[in-house]
Design a protein around this nucleic acid. Structure first.
Lengths: 336, 336
DNA sequence: TTGCGAAATGACAACGTTGTCATTTCGTTA
DNA sequence: TAACGAAATGACAACGTTGTCATTTCGCAA
């Protein structure tokens, strides 16, 4: 029968085994320079032999901090992956781990509820990833001692926010159309509830209006290709439609397929721009010009903002991460 | 000037404010039934007034557990989202939070290294998401007191594993071809390093060999549509090619586009099956039959396995989550 | 060898909870 | 009203670390 292992090996056990004091073991871990090499070796051997691992709870209790940042995922979509990736890498780099909770399907979660749950967990600060509106957005107040950053295109009265510049991206696409001689731009939206769709639509409207163009009625989609196809069938019949901005690449592809099925060519008859630049993964030789957001960068910024605010949780800032227009050949130059 | 808030409100502060003992406050939180209603109200008011929030570190220290499960992401890909979603939902349901760390880009992480880092964090058990081989896979031994589940198609000598049944899915697709009268099946693989690609290939081989068919040389792809397109161009010239299994939907789409560009029709001339069933999101009226894995379920199983093993970390099990063939119209029935 | 300042080490309290066990208070019955 | 058992409450230690401050040991010069 194997020797009965004591459940947890403590620093005290190590100290006894190494014939030194508890505090010396602590020093070996936290300020190795301050202990003689011979002593350090003894302690290290003892730790090795006993399989010692520092107790997170005790350490955090004493230090008053955890070294963890909380992440609340109100909505976990495909685009969120790169963002989480950015958060995780930045956290890693700064010596933080992530503690994560998620809104359950069907459950209605408010910011206050999320904050309440997070504050029971080992976190020094937190990031909310919010892609849809929540009821208490404007009234929410973050715990005074827990730096809170919200990833959302909306401005918040008291919390720091970080966001893609969705409006700017949409404007950029419209300007691109207009600079290429187009006189109007049609818009195919994503799901109504999605803030990113709302913002993209807002940017599209603003850009057209800034040039004195009356925006046509937007077409309602649901992010998927089939809804884009349906929109494309409608647009094919509009004589004045030379440019279409779709709120994502999948719908843009649907639009293009519908146009082709109606005998129209992209870009010769109609030009198209999408969002997210991911069509090339699925379509060989993709020609779609698309507005790409740097989701990874977004995550990095969010995490850095939290860490920067750890000492002053009530500070507030607003960060916008600009998008990039990835140019391919789905837009025709109508000038001259 | 506002009143200087004491940094943290402790149960002791609440006790004093409510005029009861420390232990009574503890009871109000943990066993409310055992304290008189009037007392409970006093304590609740005091907690409210002072803004008390239980200290995670102290609680965990005393209880000897954290209520958190660690998740190590060796590789964060699109497919991982649904899995994380499943893990998070199941964790939520069982009252656990997640603590997450990620392999950094470029960093070479072993299981041992991951375990070492995790064991410094507040976790009662952990899940490794492993999509590629690591050096110490076979020699790795999990900490004795930390239940460890690895999400990987490979069997591990000592740890529990959970996986999609990738081989089974590939076999299923091949059987489907053969049952529809096809005499052979070509295969387009994903990235070499990816275990899922390797397993899908293995299943494809096994299925053909089980029917006494010599598997043709597989075509090497990289998951993206362009590599599928290239493979499709090659396959279009093979007279005996009536059936193609591509290791994912994007490449399957590339194959289909190439076949069409070569004047061949899917499914009339060549039948195609993909993996992951996600083409419908990007392609309107998609006809691609595809093997879909239940990633969410995978995550749920992994988490449940960890929780089930918390009391007996050395237990070991192997779970396979079967795939589903989502039937559309990209496979032609060649029988009479 | 002695003395000295600096370096190394140790004793003890404290962090904020919960478990154990003792004590007080309550509601009933004699 | 007294006595009793049950319910409610409290005092104190313990969980495993780190900070404070006191003590010991070391290296070097006199």
């Amino acid at each position: 029968m194997a020797t009965m292992d004591k459940k947890n090996v403590s620093m005290n056990d190590v100290a006894i085994a190494a014939g030194v004091s508890l505090k010396t073991v602590s020093r070996v871990i936290n300020e190795p320079g301050s202990v003689r090499e011979s002593t350090r070796d003894k302690v290290h051997s003892a730790m090795e032999a006993l399989g010692f691992r520092a107790n997170f709870a005790a350490r955090s209790l004493k230090l008053g901090r955890y070294g963890c940042i909380g992440v609340v995922l109100f909505h976990l979509s495909g685009g969120a992956v790169d963002m989480i990736d950015g958060i995780a890498d930045a956290a890693e780099e700064r010596g933080f781990a992530l503690t994560m909770i998620k809104k359950r399907a069907g459950e209605k979660m408010t910011l206050a509820e999320a904050a309440r749950r997070m504050s029971q967990l080992p976190v020094d600060g937190m990031i909310f990833n919010l892609r849809q509106m929540v009821d208490d957005f404007d009234t929410f107040e973050a715990p005074k001692d827990l730096k809170t950053v919200i990833i959302t295109p909306m401005e918040h009265p008291t919390c720091s926010t970080v966001s893609d510049d969705q409006e700017g991206g949409a404007r950029m696409a419209c300007e691109y159309f207009l600079n290429h001689g187009h006189k109007n731009v049609y818009f195919v939206s994503g799901k109504k509830e999605a803030l990113s769709s709302q913002c993209r639509m807002k940017g599209w409207r603003a850009a057209l209006e800034a040039h004195g163009i009356e925006p046509p009625e937007p077409l309602q989609g649901d992010w998927n290709a089939d809804s884009g196809y349906a929109a494309g069938l409608v647009l094919a019949d509009k004589a004045d439609c030379t440019a279409v901005l779709a709120a994502n690449d999948c719908m843009a592809n649907g639009v293009m397929m519908a146009l082709r099925d109606k005998g129209l060519s992209v870009p010769d008859d109609v030009s198209v721009i999408g969002f997210d630049d991911e069509l090339y993964k699925t379509i060989p030789n993709s020609i779609l010009t698309s507005v790409k957001f740097r989701h990874r960068e977004l995550g990095v910024r969010a995490l850095n903002e939290v860490v920067a605010g750890l000492e002053a949780p009530s500070s507030r800032s607003r960060t916008l991460v600009s998008g990039v227009l990835v140019e391919r050949s789905s837009v025709k130059d109508l000038r001259a």
